[in-house]
Design a protein around this nucleic acid. Structure first.
Lengths: 225, 225
DNA sequence: ACCTGAACACCGTTCAAGT
DNA sequence: ACCTGAACACCGTTCAAGT
């Protein structure tokens, strides 16, 4: 005598999408360290072994989760030569915001070049914006590589603080303490620049980095290889 | 009747340095994933629990190992205003080479701002070089942050390939396969730039990135915060 | 004081056995 | 075909018990 289906909530069937969605929920709430096969499975009321029908292993799950995150990036309008630069900065800022909502996901594109459909669309859009700006193809290709590394590293670094639940001030304090244990007489530049080294929040520094790279792109000879 | 000490090789006593040296050996040979407390301990003919006298946990061990790696960075001569730019590129290239000898160590400075003595000396030298180049203090401070993120991300990305024992060609092939599964009609820029996206080795791309950032620094207004 | 075996609470992944 | 309990071979860290 099995109970009527009305007596218990219908257990939604497993599927690739369900697994990824459950993974993203755990990622948002607990960061990438919390995304274990067992933890994701428990979110779906099953055991870790059941996930292997839909993903080949943990890395595969993370790769697919990353592409789902890049789906949240706002690619903006078609490239416009009149305002390609603002458009490019907007896409990169949106990408950073999307990754920051999923603490630690930035480690995935550092571990392998992402070739999922959403990540590819974002890459294609950025290349289109660079072309709209008159940047030569080789410089555009290499610039995409450089700026992606920067984007991923910046987001990954931020996520560490989030994951450890540390406050901005707390981190500053820790850095200051670390430096104060050193012989600052041997580190004259750090000593005199200490306040500046700790100034600015993540967004301001990220914006500065993008400005630097784009200004550099417009003032650097294309690589001759 | 204990055997004479002559009958067996003297077991070197444990020490903080011995633990770090053993950790670096494992890191060089097996990459950061291989640096487990148990594995490092076995290198010292002891158990994992014994390490906790000298390091407070695995992260602390990795932090101390990172500072040991930065000791290998060649800081070059005192800053010379006539050739500060080459000097800066040389220090950054040396830092990258040092990290590349220890696959995965670059993840450590991404996880927390390094404040060890050797890392601090390297940071201080780079700030000195930027000042020698006439760069204003705030731009120098933020530039150091940007270029460090790029350096760490570039080295970390390379280490993944090393750790997985994958060849450069193999990685290219995998990227190409990934893209070929996509609908390239929707990705016109990637399609037409495919050879350029795969061109250049790590060193060439890294040099391009540094050139970009330094050119940008010399053409960007200082941040006004 | 220093060291360590054993235990605890976890991992990812496999596989035989179920339905 | 799909699912899963149990097992395997690992982790980091703690702690009581040894020397």
């Amino acid at each position: 005598m099995s109970p009527s289906t009305r007596d218990r909530p219908a257990k939604s069937p497993l599927s690739r999408d369900a697994v990824i969605t459950a993974g993203l929920k755990v990622l948002r709430e607990e960061g990438i360290e919390g995304v274990t096969m067992r933890r994701v499975a428990s979110e779906l009321d099953t055991g870790a072994a059941s996930l292997y029908v839909y993903v080949s292993n943990r890395q595969d799950l993370l790769n697919q989760m990353f592409d789902a995150v890049t789906a949240e990036v706002d690619l903006g309008d078609e490239p416009d030569p009149q305002r390609w630069r603002e458009q490019l900065v907007a896409v990169l800022t949106s990408a950073r915001d999307a990754m920051d909502r999923y603490p630690g996901i930035a480690r995935v594109p550092l571990a392998n070049v992402p070739t999922g459909p959403n990540a590819s669309r974002a890459a294609d859009r950025m290349l289109g914006l660079l072309r709209a700006g008159g940047v030569d193809d080789r410089s555009a290709a290499w610039f995409l590589d450089v700026v992606s590394l920067y984007l991923n590293a910046a987001s990954f670094e931020t996520s560490i603080y989030v994951e450890q639940g540390r406050e901005h001030d707390e981190v500053d304090e820790q850095i200051r303490e670390g430096f104060e244990q050193l012989d600052l007489d041997e580190l004259p530049n750090i000593r005199s620049m200490m306040p500046l080294l700790l100034s600015g929040d993540g967004d301001e520094r990220f914006a500065f980095g993008l400005q630097l790279m784009i200004d550099g792109l417009l003032n650097t000879e294309p690589p001759k290889i």
